[in-house]
Design a protein around this nucleic acid. Structure first.
Lengths: 220, 220
DNA sequence: ATTATCTATAGATCTATAGATAATGC
DNA sequence: ATTATCTATAGATCTATAGATAATGC
């Protein structure tokens, strides 16, 4: 039996913060901001309650830290994917390609990632439909710049569409995605098992096919 | 000044229950089940806290009562609308018509109704994406039978589609609707005011147009 | 006599902090 | 010396109920 290894302060810090963030992410995703206590989170993370306040200041601060943890990774993956597609497709850029370039990275992170990434997506889904007051007043604006880039690409794929069209299109698309991230099991129950809400690869295809069919052009 | 009118017990009961349900609906929609206290609700309803327990037993019981209040009205309106459409359209039944027959009634209730109806829709939206544990364990199954009827009509409009196709279609549609009921103001901010998330009449049109364009037929 | 409403409070829980202790840092 | 962790607790708040009072019912 080896002697207990000496851990540096930054190691201890990282480990504790990571445990707290993982536990908070899972519990917030499961029960919402107000459905979980700091004590619950500390218990799940196997640290003391006071340590949560030591590192994150307040419960709201912890919530914000959870939300912000993977945002840069998701944003970067989307930006890279859209840039790569725009480059390869050139003038042949189309709606299906743009949709796939935007949607695929986040789905890939959820599919390839572990529970943590999936809890994160579920949490983002809830925050997306909740009024700010329900979730510690956290507005999710971290993804906004990437959405602007996505809208710009959509415009290239459908030059005749108005900006209003494009934003409504995004509104409906984001709703469909939110529903999928949430993984409530509702469609499993309704369909009698034909569809599985955790089959993200399938959902990605369904989403692309449905939304790629839209003319995105103002009716008379 | 007239003498204080004598109110019957059933009147007093209805008034108090109604005030409590209205207040609960508004506050739950704004802050979620766990973001609101019974005291908050009683205060907004201008009744005593203990009256809430007298009429609804528990906070969870009140939440369930709120959810169930308008469900029959929404269900009945949808069933009537779909039956009427199936009758008039006959063999000429198409996807756009089916979508409109299913979607229009709930939108109409929200558009023609007051704040209460709109708060209700917002609450349904949140419950739809929340795991059961986040919302007093309330699963929304009240609408399930009507969804089955909708799926059956969809099948008539797209006979070649598989049941799996139809359920995925419903999954994505319900996400879009949920996002719209939630009225988060997000699309208003993103679009710089071009789109308004409380313009339900417009959203109904956008939703019908987008989803009616889908071939709903298995790809190769 | 029954139903609706109010008063008062039990008992649990929650967020947050002050201050002590135990590690690592250098 | 500084940073991480633990102990103990303040002070607020929360759900729920027991029991009293004030209405209506008949």
């Amino acid at each position: 039996m080896p002697a207990a290894r000496r851990r540096s302060n930054s190691e201890r810090r990282d480990v504790s913060q990571g445990r707290i963030l993982d536990a908070a992410e899972a519990l917030f995703a499961q029960s919402g901001f107000n459905g979980v206590s700091v004590k619950d989170i500390a218990g799940a993370a196997e640290v003391d309650t006071s340590l949560v306040h030591y590192y994150f200041g307040s419960k709201a601060g912890l919530f914000t830290a959870v939300i912000q943890r993977y945002a840069p990774r998701v944003n970067q993956a989307r930006m890279d994917s859209m840039a790569a597609y725009a480059r390869t497709a050139g003038a042949g850029l189309d709606l299906e390609g743009v949709l796939r370039a935007y949607l695929e990275p986040a789905f890939r992170i959820a599919i390839d990632g572990g529970e943590s990434e999936q809890n994160y997506m579920r949490l983002i889904a809830q925050v997306s439909v909740a009024p700010p007051s329900a979730m510690a007043g956290v507005q999710v604006t971290a993804f906004d710049p990437v959405i602007e880039a996505f809208i710009a690409l959509l415009h290239q794929a459908r030059p005749a569409a108005t900006r209003t069209d494009l934003y409504w299109f995004y509104h409906l698309l984001s709703g469909a995605i939110t529903q999928s991230w949430a993984r409530t099991g509702r469609i499993d129950r309704l369909s009698g098992g034909l569809c599985r809400s955790d089959d993200l690869a399938q959902i990605l295809e369904e989403t692309v096919q449905l939304f790629a069919g839209y003319p995105l052009k103002r009716r008379a």
